[in-house]
Computed example of a mutant assay.
Amino acid sequence: MEYPLETWARHKFDPKVKCDFVANNHVESFNSWLGNIRQKPITGILESIAKNLMSKFGKRFQRTVEWTNTIVLKARNKLNSNVSKAATCELIWPSGNLYQITQMDTHMSYVVNLGERSCYCGEWQVSGVPYRHACAAITHTRHDFENFCSDFYSKSTYEKTYSTFIHLLHHDTMWTEVDNAPLDPPVLKRPISKPRVKRKREVSEPEATRRSSVITCSICGVFGHNKRRCEKAPTAA
């Protein structure tokens, strides 16, 4: 197999990470940040990235002021969804922190251990948010669901993450000169063809969709012409 299971199969994810996300949206976001910045020198690219990070860190830190929950918003929404799904589960409580949960739509049974924060389905350990089976057990204890989420999703952890800031920089003309040898840019070799602007896509990555060029008339609904050339358009009196 070309890629190890730990990089794309959820059941092989490291439970210490507390993330079940498979997509690479953060890479796509970074690529969209670059945009036209790619044409700048390396110092200009780094300065633009630093400015974007400064703005994002500040906005995300200020966002926590409006929060009333003890966990981040996305984890709270996911938890609410799992709590609603817990209504389809049947519970057996022998004693202590152990529960046997039966999912009625699939008739599958799972053992939940609230003390160890684990469920045999593995969803709770990987994501860090109690899944429907664990939510059914927590409902029986009448405890707060948010207390069983990983600390990675807590408001305090979020604040610590964005409490630091990117150090500000003056314009490069104000930088302190050093005695080291000047660093010259690499020799530019222009290819014969037009320089490539778009990034190379992976083999498994779908091609970018293009907007359809087919014209549809808003009056008659027929393809191939617009309302200006439509024969059924009302004429001016």
Rank of each mutant, 00 (worst) to 15 (best):
P4Y: 07
L5F: 08
E6D: 10
T7M: 09
R10P: 03
P15W: 09
K16C: 03
V17H: 09
K18N: 01
C19D: 01
D20C: 02
F21T: 14
N24A: 14
V27Q: 04
E28V: 07
F30D: 06
N31M: 09
I37K: 13
G44P: 02
I49F: 03
A50T: 07
K56V: 15
K56A: 14
T64L: 12
E66K: 10
N69D: 14
N69L: 04
K78W: 06
L79M: 00
S81P: 00
V83C: 13
A87L: 09
D105L: 08
H107W: 05
M108N: 04
Y110P: 08
V112R: 06
C119R: 13
C121F: 12
Q125P: 07
S127I: 08
Y131K: 13
Y131T: 10
R132K: 15
R132Q: 15
H133A: 15
H140Q: 10
T141Q: 15
T141H: 07
D144W: 05
F145G: 03
F145K: 00
S150G: 09
D151H: 14
S154Y: 04
Y158Q: 10
E159I: 13
K160N: 15
K160L: 09
T161Q: 06
Y162D: 03
I166N: 05
H167G: 03
H171D: 15
H171S: 15
D172I: 14
D179T: 03
D184W: 13
D184V: 08
P186T: 00
V187H: 04
L188S: 11
K189W: 13
R190I: 13
S193C: 06
R196F: 05
R196S: 12
K200H: 11
E202R: 07
E202A: 05
V203C: 02
E207F: 03
A208C: 03
S212P: 02
I215G: 01
T216Y: 13
C217E: 08
I219A: 07
I219M: 07
G221M: 03
G221L: 06
H225A: 00
N226Y: 05
R228M: 01
R229T: 09
R229A: 07
E231A: 05
E231Y: 06
E231V: 07
A233Q: 02
